[in-house]
Nucleic acid binder design. Structure first.
Lengths: 244, 244
DNA sequence: CACCAATGGTCGGAGTTCATACCAAAATCG
DNA sequence: CGATTTTGGTATGAACTCCGACCATTGGTG
């Protein structure tokens, strides 16, 4: 029996096996972690050998990536006991001129990320609400929420918001879900930097966060999901409007 | 202002930047495409130069991967005009002894994939139902469904089922969603090969597929999603029971 | 039958990444 | 003050991957 594949599937399913170089992927992942507030300004990276192990690259490759981050002014390194790498990045607010230079390809990628975000973040909220959360986890969620509410400057608020979403994802207990949410949060961050948005309705966003926290802590999975869907839809509607 | 990161986030968010070698990733992706029925037995791969471009690897690396697949008996290659690479894999049914040797790490990974599947496949169905589908797309979906219904042998049915799910994902119009569904379908395939399951209720599964196709073609996004959720839950319940 | 096109196969050299070992700086401790 | 520990920094050789060019096979065409 001979058959040919449905002609649409190979093109849809096959993809670059590894993306760009290890070095570049390293830079990107660390820069993303900094920008999303996983390593806020003033925080320190794990020691090189440990971080290389976490990223599954050689120390040489990691060091090359670190050199690039230093060059970009994101980190500073000191040697010797008590030394290490400190994050120095001062977050920057969006530039009003960036969106005009966004390519059609970039636009498509951003729209795709918004679609995917609307799948994975509500899914994460649903799993988090269904999970058996211990007191430490519940505290993490409440603290992450408080940090958003307590953030004063916009860039600080942006990072706190990312950490909040990443915290929800981590409570899902699903590594694949965490990875998916990390990638969409990275893309969202990129979009919000590139697109000059009006101040989002932070009070409204905080109310949604509060409702989400309440639903997760109460174990109301469907409620958690629908609040997160609404939250994603609100951000997406704003960004789509500006992307055209 | 100095801060340390929430101690849970770096561990959750940082991940291997590139996985294993390009060569190994190549083998894995092509073997997965074969096993999921994207390239069924008797079908031919695109020419080497084209396939290398699709996977973003060198011809040399691709050729090494092809050599490994030949060695494994999955493909055969002939040179000259009208030559190329033909899939020869005879699908195999699950071995009753494999599940006993599954490591705890593998088990965790599989359970994670089931959780993630329950997020991304309903999400894909929802997007597909919301998408503007032209006649060609509607035909693809109906044909994929018919192939599942018409498959007689179990391994053939398994591949047709995968192609059906990949087709739904491709109709979502979201590359990230397609990638997510591809990865969970690959993992599901692995699980179903490793775990000796009782014959699933194919008639029930077909009814769920039919309901899903109907909902997607009618543009009923919420319905499509809930049917897919039920479909995922049924498979997951069976597999979880067997995984312990 | 010669030529051409469409495929796979091979080669050489360069770039990237890795593993291992060892050196240097800086802080702590006895 | 010397020894130790904890960090970053450097060097070397091997493995992996890539690129470009060219060769070989096979089938189609005029």
């Amino acid at each position: 029996m001979t058959a040919s594949p449905d002609h649409h599937l190979p093109g849809a399913v096959l993809r670059p096996v590894r993306g760009h170089h290890a070095f570049e992927a390293c830079v990107e992942q660390l820069a993303t972690a900094i920008r999303l507030g996983v390593y806020p300004r003033g925080s320190t990276f794990p020691p090189e050998r440990e971080l290389a192990a976490m990223l599954h690259v050689s120390r040489a490759t990691l060091r090359e990536a670190m050199a690039a981050l230093r060059q970009a002014g994101l980190i500073e390194t000191t040697r010797g006991r008590g030394g290490g790498t400190v994050v120095t990045l001062k977050q920057r607010t969006p530039s009003a001129r960036r969106a005009a230079r966004v390519s059609a390809e970039q636009r498509r990628e951003w729209l795709d990320a918004l679609e995917f975000r609307r799948i994975v973040e509500p899914g994460a909220a649903y799993l988090a609400a269904n999970a058996e959360l211990d007191d430490a986890m519940r505290s993490q969620l409440e603290r992450a929420h408080d940090e958003v509410a307590g953030a004063r400057r916009r860039a600080e608020h942006r990072q706190a918001d990312s950490r909040f979403h990443l915290t929800v994802a981590s409570l899902s207990g699903s590594p694949r879900t965490v990875e998916a949410v990390t990638s969409v949060q990275a893309m969202l961050h990129e979009m919000l930097l590139a697109i000059p948005v009006l101040e989002t309705n932070i009070a409204h966003s905080d109310r949604q966060h509060a409702a989400l926290v309440k639903a997760i802590l109460a174990g109301r999975a469907e409620k958690a999901r629908s609040v997160m869907e609404e939250h994603c839809d609100d951000t997406a509607a704003l960004l789509r409007g500006l992307l055209g």
